[in-house]
Design a protein around this nucleic acid. Sequence first.
DNA 1: TTGTAAGCGTTATCAA
DNA 2: TTGATAACGCTTACAA
Lengths: 344, 344
Amino acid sequence: MPSGSVSGERIHVQVRPPTIDDVADAAGVSTATVSRVLNGGRVAEATRSRVATAMAQLGYRRNPHARGLVTGSSGTIGVLVPDVAGPLYAQMARGIEDVLDPLGMQFFLATDARNPERSHAALGSLLERRVDALILIGNQIPSDALRALIGDRAPLILVERETNDDVAAPTIELDNHGGAEAATRHLIERGYRRIAHVAGPRRAGAARIAGYHAAHAAAGLTAGPTIPAGFTEESGLAAAETLLGYDDVDAVFCINDRVALGLMHGLIGGGRRPGHDVAIVGFDDLPFARYLNPPLTTVRQDARALGRCAAEYAIAALEDRSPPHTTVVPTELVIRASSPMARG
Amino acid sequence: MPSGSVSGERIHVQVRPPTIDDVADAAGVSTATVSRVLNGGRVAEATRSRVATAMAQLGYRRNPHARGLVTGSSGTIGVLVPDVAGPLYAQMARGIEDVLDPLGMQFFLATDARNPERSHAALGSLLERRVDALILIGNQIPSDALRALIGDRAPLILVERETNDDVAAPTIELDNHGGAEAATRHLIERGYRRIAHVAGPRRAGAARIAGYHAAHAAAGLTAGPTIPAGFTEESGLAAAETLLGYDDVDAVFCINDRVALGLMHGLIGGGRRPGHDVAIVGFDDLPFARYLNPPLTTVRQDARALGRCAAEYAIAALEDRSPPHTTVVPTELVIRASSPMARG
DNA sequence: TTGTAAGCGTTATCAA
DNA sequence: TTGATAACGCTTACAA
């Protein structure tokens, strides 16, 4: 015998969420009819509204598990990024959300921290979730391993892939070469003659190095020193040490804004004035760039657009419209005070 | 009659992923046994290894939809953030991932851009996904609306809630008051006597204003002007305009680093030298802070730890271990060159 | 220790 | 236009 409820007592019952059966009962129709209302099938208007009322009253939400079980799809996309904390990756995620959200789709975000082992594990758990498609950003898994892992489970979209072997999948890339070339050409046009490059690793880094050289070649100039670095302020700071050794360098093109920031810091510490003694150009146009002292000339990339593009391709692939094989997203040079006309 | 396969032809068949039945057949056991292996039930070692082999050979992955359907849970947590692109939110997401990943759980990230309408919609789609728990970051939905929407569907964890009405849910907050007080006290101790505050909106902003006043009160000083601003460089720049009007102000405590950056930029533009004519303190310790010129004194917050904490509470709630009602995460003052000893 | 079988909440195929 | 009903792939009593 259940104990009587004491006045003021509040019994917490975990209520079972309403099912399609509950709705069908409430509306006096079959579950098939409710399902048709849900999925936009042919239903008499009167019936439809009765069902709609019942759903609203019960606060019905369809169960995605049951739905996924029968349809074989999850309405979900898996996104693998190197690092959630990178502002550019966050922007890409935002772009992906821009297109998924209106479609009622969501995405799982996983990170691999550029670690191959972690990469495999993350991809595994994404596939485990039965994502309908996969967007891989800055990925480094070799193409054969990728294929072995993914097979035909889900269409694949690659963004800024970091290896050179070809994968039979739509790829979206930033115009790293063009951006670097434009940045370097800008410095040349402003009268700088000894332009160093603080370079980044991997594929994107290599493309920017190539662009840097191309601009020199086009102007009939000899490229300056290339100093290898990473992607953070810290490695920019380290590059400054090296650069302070060259007193003929009058401009530096940096692999990105964060490196440029570290570099500027180091140069100032070494008694050189960015924007006066030495011109600086970055890459990315992070929010802080225009507020630096001096404001940083840089190559803007629209990471959000990249994300949007990737998501659109993913949707296209799901709908059997095959997306283009390779897309290159343009960059834009933003000129600020860190690269004035050379005093020469 | 199916046409014979032509030599060299490659027929692309969308292969049905292996099911638990396939594994059972391959291993010569029942599906129940396979399920036990999967879920760590009692199985003879010999059987277990046979099943494991079969799973490996087939490349079996359990279907989360079927699983979710019967268990009633999804192994998934919903996270609602104001804005994916904010570096701090990204760090929180990372902290959440830190604890979810080892548990084989994943999270859905939704954003509301501080927009109430969007907030409801995002929460709806998260609930639609049948997330097992919900982490709301910087949320502004009034408590009654929140309860109406969520009910008992999922345990709720609140991080840095931005309204004042109380919700019966575990809440994690940054020590905004303490951090602001420490920053202001630091300026006072360094000999500054006319300290302005570039303030932020909402609850966190109010707590920091209170901390700023508390430090003044404790020192028997009168607080300087408080200039309302937002959270970006742009509003810091605008605040600089105002501040240039006060020539007695010798130090500024800013709501965050981005605002401090904009402010410094504006002050320099107005002929005042941060770290010389005027001391500056920020909040957050974003990566760029220590590389500014001068390096920015700021209040570090460990957003990743906040995220970890939230995820742990969510897990605890799922396991019926009730998490503490309110947790305040401490901050740490990081002293750099933007706040030297006052010359006075 | 293992197997049998009954759901879980949908969608989709038939008939009516 | 509607309604039965059989999957979908898994977990979990209950039996053996």
